[in-house]
Every structure is written in C-alpha cells, then in structure tokens.
Amino acid sequence: MRSTWDQQQSNTFQKNKIYRMNSFVVMTLADYIEIETTRDELIRACKQAADLIRTRVDYKYILVLLFLKRLSDEWKREYNEALKTLLEKGLSKEEAENLAKDRSFHRFEYPERYTWEELRKNINGLPVRLSEALKLLAEKNPELQGVVDRLDFLEFTRHRDNFDILVQLFELFSGLNLGRASDSILGDAYEWLIGYFAPQKAKEGEVFTPSEVVDLIVRIVDPKPMDSVYDPAAGYARMLIRAYDYVKQKYGEEEARELDRLAEETKKNGVPWDKLKAELGLRVTRL
C-alpha cells in the first residue's frame, strides 16, 4: 500500500511547511530556504504583541525583545555566511566553525550561548537568561549600553502574569526571521508600537508625533543641502531622519550628506545616540 503524504502549514510567522510520511517528519522547508519576515508580517506580530500586553506592561519590553531578536538573527546569518566562505577556502569543519564566530565577521559581538535559539531551550529560566544576555551584550558592545540593558526582566517577572506574558511574547517573536531585515522595516515596526501606545505615554509626559505630521513639517520646512536642521526634542530622531530622506530624494544622496542635523536629547531616553551619530551623521547635544 502506498504511503500517503499530508502537508501542514505552520503559523503565519514561521511560514515553515512540514511534510510528513505516516506521521514521520522527513524535511522542513526552512532547512532549504531562509525565509525572511516581511514588513506586513512584522507589523502583524507587533499588533499581536500589543494585544498581549495592552496597558499592563511597558511597551519598551516589546522593543527590547524585538531588538534582541534582530541582533541574534543577524549574528546567526553572519555566522552562516562566514562559515560557508571559510569552508570554501578549504578550512576543516571544526576550524571554520570556530573562526566564523570571530568578531571580525560580525557587526556586534554576540555571545553564542545567548542566541535566541539557546534562550528558547530553557523557557522557565528565561528571565534570568535574558537579563544575563542583555547585560553581557551591553558590556561587549559599548554602543548598546543604555539601550538593551535598561530593563530588568527579573523584576518584571516577579508577578506570575508577567512571566506568562514574557513567554508568549518570546514565542511570538520566535517565528520571525530578522537576519536581513532593513532598518526601514524595523523602524516602521518601532514607530507603529510607539504610535499605538502614544495615548498612554502622553499621560506620563512622553508625546509622540505621528509620522504624517512629521512628513508635513519636513515638506513645509523644505530643507536643502547645506541647511542646518535642529530638533530640540529629538526623541528617536525621526524628524531628522525624515529630513535627510527628503533631501536625498529631492537632490540626491551626496547632497543629502551635506545636510547638517543637530539633535538635542536627554541621557535617560534610551536612544542609541552613539550608533545614530555614526550611521546618520547627527550632531548631538545632551540636556
């Protein structure tokens, strides 16, 4: 009698087709094709995450988890690319695996024992392991200090309900592949989350400017190359980033680099300003 095949589709985020033969898993599509998460899928995941926490939990826990997933996926992608290159150069499997972890192949130094997959192996110990991972990441990458290590997951999960929320968020983001996600896609996700929780944060003194208003202001100001653009309450520098994009689209990338952008911020807002200064050419003053 011929064996029957049935194909099962995993959830929206995993996009991982499992083929079975008499209930025996023989292969997964993810073993052969690296499927990247799209903008729509990422926003959909953010909506689910927001629905999980409502207003009970600070949305910054979502941001940090999302950022950690990006760092982990990016490190894994860089590792696989380096491993392939080293094997093609004739190194043994053991030599290539060890060398592919070298800092020179990676944008950030990421401890392998704290990759997302490793963290997922011990869900009950997740709060402790997350705290350890974020602290170590900040120690090894000075530009991440004050960004990834500003939340205490141990304190957060002292309440059992919060532990359950953390596990659900972690499992939700486990289905994402952010190894090649552009800054634009991640920026859209962050902006959606910030906008969604804006009414709540406004009561605490944090005011969010909708992207439509930011775009309108930039068009009215109509910045040109060699102009200086100053934002006295920069937040996440969205106004300055949009100003750069506006000049780039209108005059070209080379001319856009001549735009002088000055941001003023507070040390406590958790924005990775050193990274932004390096990547976006911002001048920053601190209150």
Score class of each variant (00 low, 15 high):
98 N>I: 12
63 L>Q: 06
42 L>Q: 10
88 E>V: 06
105 F>G: 05
97 E>F: 05
35 I>H: 07
98 N>R: 13
85 T>K: 10
103 R>C: 01
66 L>I: 00
64 V>H: 03
42 L>T: 15
27 M>D: 15
37 T>G: 00
70 R>A: 05
27 M>I: 12
116 W>Q: 04
36 E>N: 09
35 I>K: 07
37 T>R: 02
109 E>W: 10
104 S>P: 05
73 D>I: 04
59 Y>E: 02
53 I>Y: 00
103 R>Q: 10
30 A>N: 12
75 W>Q: 01
53 I>G: 03
108 F>H: 14
54 R>K: 13
86 L>M: 07
83 L>S: 03
89 K>T: 11
109 E>C: 08
44 R>L: 15
77 R>M: 07
109 E>Q: 13
49 A>E: 01
79 Y>M: 01
61 Y>C: 05
111 P>R: 06
99 L>N: 05
89 K>F: 03
102 D>K: 10
97 E>R: 13
105 F>C: 03
48 Q>Y: 04
56 R>L: 10
82 A>Q: 02
86 L>P: 07
80 N>K: 09
54 R>D: 12
72 S>Q: 01
52 L>R: 08
108 F>N: 12
58 D>R: 13
54 R>N: 14
68 L>Y: 15
91 L>R: 14
80 N>A: 08
91 L>W: 12
106 H>D: 08
57 V>N: 13
116 W>H: 03
59 Y>K: 09
82 A>T: 00
65 L>D: 03
97 E>P: 10
31 D>L: 09
74 E>P: 00
71 L>G: 04
46 C>E: 09
79 Y>H: 09
77 R>A: 05
101 K>T: 12
113 R>D: 09
92 S>M: 00
53 I>D: 02
49 A>H: 00
36 E>Q: 09
111 P>M: 10
49 A>C: 02
90 G>Y: 06
26 V>L: 14
122 N>S: 13
114 Y>H: 11
106 H>S: 07
78 E>R: 09
